[in-house]
Amino acid sequence: MNVVNDQAEANTPSLRRAGQIDLREIAIHLPGKTRFEAVRNISAHIDAGEFVSIIGPSGCGKSTLLNAIAGYLAPSGGSLRVDGEAVTGPGPDRGMVFQHNSLFPWKTALHNVAFGLKMNGVGYRERLARAEEFLRLVGLTGFSDRYPAQLSGGMQQRVEIARALINNPRVVLMDEPFGALDAQTRERMQQLLLDIWGRFKPTVLFVTHDIDEALILSDRVLVMTCRPGQAREEIDIDLPRPRPENIVVSPEFIALKKRCLALVRDEARKSLIDGLEADRIQIPVEA
C-alpha cells in the first residue's frame, strides 16, 4: 500500500537521479529521396525536474525532435545527452507518452502498466501491486481487468501515462498526449499530470499545439520556427505554482499568451508563405 511512498522516498535528494537534457546544435535529417532537413541547429539545456513545453507551427519538427531525444531517430549533427550520456536508443530511463494509443491490446490495463516492471525483472506479485497503485493514481481503480478496447479514449491515455511512469523514468517525453481528448477530460489530465510530476519530479518535455496548456503546465516554453525547425525563443513561465484555474484570466498569463501567440502565428504565416512559394503560387500581400 505504500508502494508509491516508497517510490517517492527513492527520490529523496541524495538518491535522486538527475534527468538533465543537453541539446547542442542538433540537426536532424529525415531519410528519403531528398534528405529532408527537419530540425536545424537547436541548442537547449533542460534542468533535472524541469517541465518544459515545445510549441511551434504544425510540421515544424516537434515530434522529430522528441523522437530524437527518445532515441529512435539519430540526429545528423550535434550532440544529444541525457545526464551527460549520449542517447543511443530508447531505454527505460526515459518514458514516452505517445499521442496515439500505443497500449498493448492483448494485455489488461493492469498488465499494460505492469509491463515495464516485468521488463526490469520485478517479481509478479510486487509488480501487480505497484501497477494497481499507479492505476489508482490515475483514477482507474476498478478498471484493472479491462482490456484497452473496453476503455474510453481518456482512460486509455491515463493507462498510457501510468505505464510510462511506473519505471520512475528520469525524463518523460510527451507528444501531444492530450490532443485527442475533450476539453474537460483534458483539463483533468493536466491536473493529474501536474500532481504526478510534483510527486516524482521527473524532467518533462511536453509537445503541444495548445498554448494555454503549455502555459498552465510549464516552467519554460520553447517556441520553434517553421521548418526546418530552429529554436525561435525560450520563454520563462514564472507564474506561481500551484496555478489556480482562474490564472488564465490573470494579466501575467494573458501577456505571456499574447507573446507566444504572436510568435507562433508569425512562424505559421512564414511556413504558409514558404509553402505557397514552393508551389509557385503568387499571393498578393496585404498590409
Partner: peptide, 11 residues
C-alpha cells in the same frame, strides 16, 4: 508503436 513502447519500457 507497440515495439517502440516496449523498448521504452526496457524490453
Amino acid at each position: 508503436r507497440h515495439v517502440h513502447a516496449a523498448r521504452f519500457l526496457g524490453a
